[in-house]
């Protein structure tokens, strides 16, 4: 699926503080990302990178402004419509993988297929197997608990890619991995994003990784600074 372009206008993020007032994470940012391009999002801890990604994924609503993926203004959609949009367009990768324990690697990858199929279609089964092979997972029938952290993140990546999403959002995908595992996971992510033409948003502390992406932005004190 070719990537979707992103256009944010006057995007404001923040949360109410106890005892009144509001903590602003993003104060009216407007930015664009062309379809199929890749943006690295950096910034100090607590600057709101994760909150921004959640808003872009439709998991949380911004305090104001618009987030347009293609023609669709995501925050204006209802909760069910945002679920549907994520299912059809988005692949999410988390710092802590968030795989489902008690299931095998293959089952974890096939999980998104079961959201709207009683039985995963043949094409998705083949794709799941191919993605796991590509991710270097030797035994897809192994329970996830028995896998190393590096393997788990590659399984999580395969899960995000199952439905060939137009948008990939990765929140610190290498932060909880050792250097070698992190590099392997990052390499795989960048490769598949480029091959599929998906629009990639990647939050990271790893400046070397950020440097490999064509667009970079830093979130600091409520402002988003683009650093080309």
């Amino acid at each position: 699926m070719p990537g979707l372009p992103l256009a944010c206008r006057d995007l404001r993020l923040g949360f109410a503080l106890k005892g009144g007032g509001e903590h602003r994470l993003l104060d009216g940012a407007s930015f664009d990302l062309p379809a199929g391009s890749a943006l690295a999002l950096t910034g100090p801890s607590g600057s709101g990178k994760t909150s921004l990604l959640h808003a872009l994924a439709g998991l949380a609503l911004p305090a104001g402004g618009s987030i347009r993926w293609g023609e669709l203004n995501l925050p204006a959609q209802g909760e069910a419509a945002r679920d549907t949009w994520r299912r059809g367009n988005l692949g999410l990768v988390f710092q802590d993988f968030f795989l489902i324990g008690g299931m095998t690697a293959l089952e974890n990858v096939l999980l998104p297929a079961w959201f709207d199929h009683a039985r995963a279609p043949e094409a998705l089964r083949d794709r799941a197997a191919a993605l796991l092979a590509r991710a270097g997972i030797q035994s897809p029938a192994t329970r996830i608990e028995a896998m190393s952290r590096g393997e788990r993140q590659r399984v999580a990546l395969a899960r995000a890619l199952l439905r060939a999403p137009a948008v990939l959002i990765a929140d610190e995908p290498t932060a909880s991995l050792d250097a070698a595992s992190g590099a392997a996971a990052a390499e795989l992510l960048l490769q598949v994003a480029q091959e599929s033409g998906a629009t990639l948003l990647l939050a990271t502390h790893d400046l070397a990784l950020a440097a490999r992406l064509p667009h970079r932005a830093t979130l600091v004190e409520g402002r988003l600074e683009q650093t080309q």
Binding site: A80, R86, L92, F94, F98, P112
Partner: peptide
């Protein structure tokens, strides 16, 4: 609750 949040995040409808 984290597992449920993850399921929602990766596109599971609430009825799932």
């Amino acid at each position: 609750r984290q597992e449920f949040a993850v399921l929602r995040a990766i596109g599971a409808p609430r009825r799932f």
